[in-house]
Structures are given as C-alpha cells and as structure tokens.
C-alpha cells in the first residue's frame, strides 16, 4: 500500500476533495481544536486532526502549509471550507473516529516511519 492508501484505510477516511490534492506525502500529524495552538505548534506537511469544519480551518492550514485536514467524529465540512480546500490544494478528509482514536492510529503509522 502506498502512503495515502495506508493512512486512508487505517483511519477509515473519506477523501472529500479531489484526488489531485494528494500530491505530497504527509510528514507527521498534529491534533488540536484551538486554532492558535495549531498555529503555534503544527509543522508544514502535518496532517491536522480536528473537530472543526468551518473555513477558518482551511485558512490556517494554508498559512502553515498543512499536508491535510482530518475532520473527526463523522462531521462533514461546511461547503465553503470544502471549496477553499480544493482551491488551496489541501486534502480534506472526514473520519468516524474521534480525535484520540485518529491520533493514535496516525501515531502508529508515523512512528514506524520515523
């Protein structure tokens, strides 16, 4: 399985943007629902795990060169967030897992790579 296939199957992700947003491999992950905390601590290339689904998440993700956004708990993004993600080339996913479960599964994947 390639990089994205492994992440998508392990976290039961649904890719909501087009396939071409999966251009670059993710390099790590950060989980946070306070936007200022993510601004301070997430790195470029990280997958961002969050419960939020509004367009400011994409604005912050774009500023930080985030590698992808995973919305947890089966929540769906607002339409304008989805449009912005596509425009910015940021893969946007939803998962039925919660923040803890999604983080744990990504930790497994990235710690093996490290």
């Amino acid at each position: 399985m390639n990089h994205w296939e492994k992440i998508i199957s392990s976290l039961d992700l649904t890719l909501l943007t087009s396939l071409k947003t999966l251009n670059n491999n993710a390099r790590g992950a950060y989980c946070g629902d306070l936007l200022s905390d993510v601004l301070a601590n997430a790195s470029g290339g990280d997958l961002w795990i969050t419960i939020h689904r509004h367009r400011s998440v994409i604005a912050v993700a774009s500023l930080l060169n985030i590698g992808g956004v995973i919305i947890t708990g089966g929540r769906q993004p607002n339409q304008d967030a989805l449009i912005d993600a596509e425009k910015e080339g940021i893969p946007l996913f939803s998962t039925p897992l919660n923040n803890f479960q999604a983080s744990g599964r990504l930790y497994k994947i990235f710690s093996k790579q490290g």
Binding site: D33, L34, L35, S36, D37, L39, A40, T50, H52, S56
Partner: peptide
C-alpha cells in the same frame, strides 16, 4: 466555539 479566543493570540504574536 469556532476554536478562537483561547487567549493565545497575543502570546503567539509576542513569541
């Protein structure tokens, strides 16, 4: 509720 207003904005700016 949107994830703003955590009281981290000005400290982030200062840092």
């Amino acid at each position: 509720e949107m994830g703003f207003g955590a009281g981290m904005g000005l400290p982030n700016i200062k840092r």
